[in-house]
């Protein structure tokens, strides 16, 4: 309920969506990142919800508005409407359930059909703490991410492993692309992108790198 507009101080606001199958841990990744909180029995998300958190990139404050969407396929028609305007996406699967990885391809298509071509996407293998139950190897997922030109990271919302890194890396990348664009245009990024304006995140080349887990310092 916090309604303190005084904290409403940021240079950029980026909309990021969380997608992926039911029960892969999207809501917990979000609560870990925005509130450092984890719940063992969070109920299924109905429709969409969102939370925000600000981070620092260079000397700028980047505010992330992260939309958490329902995972069941049937909800896609509703949730896809919320992809509109997203400049980043975390596509989450559960490293212990193969079917959630198989469905990544469909989610990716869904994302690309409904968002700007330059969206920064990261494939996220969550529940990495369940080492003895792992069903998808890091190499397989990394290979997939390389082929699909997305970032990749394995996380554990439970152990707070790489959650910060995953979000920060996506946001930093969006920031990098945006400020580079602005510089190319010869503008100061802050004034070039006043609040309320859509940000174009630049060309595909900018986001082709596949990063190693944990490579980004938070």
């Amino acid at each position: 309920m916090g309604a303190y507009r005084a904290e409403d101080d940021y240079d950029y606001l980026f909309k990021v969506v969380l997608t992926g199958d039911s029960g892969v841990g999207k809501s917990n990744l979000l609560s870990r990142f925005t509130r450092n909180d984890f719940s063992n029995d969070s109920r299924a998300t109905i429709g969409v919800e969102f939370a925000t958190r600000s981070i620092q990139c260079d000397d700028k404050i980047v505010k992330a508005q992260i939309w958490d969407t329902a995972g069941q396929e049937r909800y896609r028609a509703i949730t896809s409407a919320y992809y509109r305007g997203a400049v980043g996406a975390l596509l989450v699967y559960d490293v212990t359930r193969h079917v959630t990885f198989e469905n990544v391809e469909r989610w990716l298509k869904e994302l690309r059909d409904h968002t700007d071509a330059n969206i920064v996407i990261m494939l996220v293998g969550n529940k990495a703490d369940l080492r003895h139950l792992r069903a998808i190897s890091t190499e397989d997922a990394k290979g997939f991410a390389e082929r699909e030109n997305t970032f990749f990271m394995e996380t554990s919302a439970l152990e707070a492993l790489n959650v910060e890194n995953a979000f920060t890396e996506v946001l930093t990348e969006i920031y990098r692309v945006v400020s580079k664009k602005a510089l190319e245009a010869g503008d100061d990024p802050t004034t070039a992108l006043p609040k309320g304006q859509t940000i174009n995140v630049g060309g595909r080349d900018d986001i082709s790198a596949v990063k190693k887990p944990g490579c980004c310092s938070a």
Binding site: M1, G2, A3, Y4, R5, E7, D8, Y10, Y12, L13, F14, K15, S27, N28, L30, S31, T34, R35, D37, S39, D41, S42, R43, A44, T45, E49, F50, A51, T52, R53, S54, K63, Q65, I66, D68, Y82, R84, G85, V87, L193, P194, K195, G196, Q197, T198, I199
Partner: peptide, 30 residues
Amino acid sequence: SSSPLPSSTSLPSSSSTTSSTSPPSSNSSS
């Protein structure tokens, strides 16, 4: 802001939610 873009990237929306003060939406778990 008089922006006509409801979900564009940099609206001053939802600024009420800050990581320290508020739960994200109505959420579930808690």
